[in-house]
Design a protein around this nucleic acid. Structure first.
Length: 671
DNA sequence: GTAGAACAGTTTTTT
DNA sequence: ACTGTTCTAC
């Protein structure tokens, strides 16, 4: 069944025994190889439930398992443990967490919950009230997470990453200490705790053995994007590395901001002596001209791990680099190109537009909508962060875990004439953190609230009393409670109410409320289509995606927009060489998603948000990742008819060239 | 202490 | 454009 594999892939798929490191370049058939390996193991009689498949998203796990199922014809692959590190931690801890004194009904705090709780504590400690500015709650959450994930000392993290906060070391330490106590008391785990507790579980004599015996084979995908803590977890699971297989590509490491480190992959053979290393360097994805261009981009990375991808795919057009006048011109050019490709037979679905940051597609989205081009956007989605969705989830979370202070604090403030102080008073009145059953006390005790809030408080009580049955109907019940409150608070409640309906849709298919809530915080919906319900399979739509969310994807035609310095590399990330190299790899990841055609777009001019009357704008430079020697791998063009300016000078761009300025000026009158 | 208006600064990526 | 913070009036 493995005829389709090349010798290297076959070696990886059939490897037996000791630890294995697969260094798999972009487009080298990595997913397929892993799927084959799973199929191979199952064919050899390994029970699926003894296999653990750790991937970056649940989607990736599903994809691999369904391919493996097709190979084996086996339905039992559902029993393979698959998902993200965090999702797996969640499941394992609900089963074995008792050994560490963890309640099985713990709540999972997402990033904003973490920030909110820290803010609550900061207020209690009276920090940041003076003239001296104190780090914002989001920054506190960042610092905390970095410290934990990198297993580093707080002082070092502050000095290296947040020098402006270093003076507040003592205050930050105090907040972190309190934060930890509070989480424990509330039976809440944040993202980092999930990993920490999993790690701790691995060291627990009895539970540790139980867990490591649970799995004979562990496969880890995208290993270049794991952090030191995750590497430690693997080591505690498989101390000698038996049955451990990791797959990754150091050239595609793009999660350093989340403490991922390429060192994990580079040092794997040292950490697990006896490691077999297999390299997949044959690219099956892209045409030769595209591969030449992407190889040239990554070749400029100073700390590159020697590896050259090759292909036997001959022919194909040069990738293009199209210089546009401004963002609108760029959006226009993308639309035209996308539609042209569709005319020539490439469905919208086989095309993707990639960009660095979620909002980079704003202008394009408007243009697409205007032209009735359907699209789905991945990444940068703020659905779960919108206040009203958080409100609904908070109600559900309290029902599961009535000690969840953050959620109480949030929900109580929804009541009319109840603010932060009122919420605290109510919480103290029924004793959220006192022993016993806080929910029973909330339901039964008389609680004084301002008169306008009385009826709403009763409604909340009734709601809690009625939260039973399948998750969608529970969401519906919560929606009923929130609707009047939302109508009172917002002038435009309709879109928000619609979001709550979406939430109800999302809840279908979950057996229990706590599962729904936990899974939702661990794996939020990734695309606008996830929210619109199951998309009609026959419907064609263009894919818009942040580069981060495009990881692992591939399309026939890829359009990369905003190839300008300041966009990519993001000017938030040009601080040090490490960050800059990560941006380069990010750009590389974007370009390597293309199979047949690659188009890169560069707008010459950006409008700055104009608060005043003047129309302010700035001139961009072409991204520094496309210097002269790399640009020669591209076909250069401009969107504007240029009198005199040759392509080369236009692509070099910038205000220094009088020709391109004149062209710009012409562009001002022409539309 | 809360609500509502006026204002400011903000957004990189995500489990 | 959007949300979060600050100020003022009840």
């Amino acid at each position: 069944m493995f005829e389709s594999l090349n010798p290297d892939q076959l070696a990886a798929a059939e490897h037996a025994g000791g630890p294995l490191l697969v260094v798999a370049g972009a487009g080298s058939g990595k997913t397929w190889t892993i799927a084959c390996r799973v199929a191979h193991l199952v064919d050899r009689g390994v029970p699926p439930e003894l296999i653990l498949l750790l991937t970056f998203t649940r989607r990736a796990a599903r994809e691999m398992l369904s391919r493996a199922e097709r190979l084996t014809g086996e339905r039992g692959l559902k029993r393979v443990w698959g998902g993200t590190f965090h999702g797996t931690a969640n499941r394992l801890l609900r089963l074995h967490g008792g050994a560490l004194g963890l309640a099985p009904d713990f709540t999972v705090l997402d990033r904003t919950d973490t920030a909110d709780l820290m803010d609550l504590i900061r207020g209690e400690l009276g920090l940041g009230e003076g003239e001296r500015r104190f780090p914002r709650k989001e920054t506190l959450a960042d610092v905390y997470s970095r410290t934990v994930n990198a297993q580093a000392r707080l002082v070092d993290v502050l000095e290296r990453g947040y020098p402006w906060c270093a003076e507040e070391l003592e205050g930050i330490r105090a907040i972190f200490e309190r934060y930890t106590e509070r989480k424990r008391a509330q039976h809440a785990l944040d993202y980092d705790d999930l990993l920490l507790f999993w790690h701790a579980l691995g060291k627990h004599p009895a539970a540790g053995r139980a867990i490591s015996e649970r799995f004979d084979h562990i496969l880890v995908d995208e290993y270049q994007d794991t952090n030191p803590l995750q590497a430690d977890i693997l080591a505690s699971l498989r101390p000698g590395g038996e049955g451990l297989v990791v797959v990754g590509d150091d050239a595609q490491s793009i999660y350093g901001f989340r403490s991922a480190t390429v060192r994990n992959i580079l040092e794997f053979p040292e950490r697990f002596p006896g490691t077999t290393v297999v390299r997949l360097e044959r690219n099956y994805r892209s045409t030769r001209p595209i591969l030449d261009a992407t190889n040239a981009v990554i070749a400029l990375s100073p700390q590159r791990h020697e590896k050259t991808l090759w292909t036997s795919r001959e022919g194909g057009e040069l990738p293009s680099l199209l210089t546009c006048l401004d963002e609108r011109d760029q959006a226009d050019a993308v639309c035209r190109s996308v539609l042209e490709h569709r005319e020539r037979g490439t469905a919208l679905k086989q095309q993707a537009v990639l960009f660095r940051a979620g909002h980079h597609s704003d202008v394009l989205e408007i243009e697409l909508a205007r032209r009735n081009v359907p699209f789905v956007k991945y990444g940068g989605l703020k659905f779960l962060e919108s206040a009203h969705v958080k409100d609904a989830l908070a109600v559900l979370r309290i029902a599961d875990n009535p000690r969840d202070e953050v959620s109480w604090f949030r929900v109580l403030q929804l009541l009319d004439h109840v603010g932060p102080a009122g919420a605290r008073r109510v919480m103290a009145a029924f004793g959220v953190s006192a022993p016993g059953d806080p929910m029973a006390r909330f339901l039964e005790q008389a609680i004084a609230v301002p008169a306008p809030a009385r009826a709403e408080l009763d409604a909340l009580r009734t709601t809690f009393g009625e939260l039973a049955g399948p998750p969608p109907s529970q969401v519906e019940r919560v929606r009923g409670f929130l609707e009047p409150l939302l109508r009172r608070r917002h002038d435009q409640p309709e879109p928000r109410l619609r979001d709550l309906e979406q939430l109800e849709h999302l809840a279908t298919g979950f057996e229990t409320r706590d599962r729904f809530v936990a899974e939702l915080t661990l794996e939020p919906p990734v695309s606008t289509s996830d929210l619109a319900g199951p998309p009609h399979l026959d419907e064609d739509y263009l894919v818009l995606s942040t580069i981060h969310s495009a990881k692992g994807g591939e399309w026939d035609v890829v359009h990369v927009i905003h190839a300008a310095d300041g966009m990519i590399p993001s000017d938030m990330a040009t601080g040090d060489a490490h960050e800059l190299e990560e941006e380069r790899r990010l750009f590389y990841v974007a370009l390597t998603r293309a199979r047949d055609e690659l188009h890169v777009y560069f707008p010459l001019r950006y409008h700055r948000s104009n608060r005043g009357l003047e129309d302010r704008h700035w001139y961009a430079q072409l991204t520094r990742f496309l210097p002269e020697e790399v640009r020669s791998r591209f076909a250069l063009a401009t969107t504007y008819a240029d009198a005199g300016a040759d392509d080369e000078s236009a692509a070099a761009g910038g205000p220094g060239r009088s020709e391109s300025v004149d062209v710009l000026l012409a562009g001002l009158w022409s539309d």
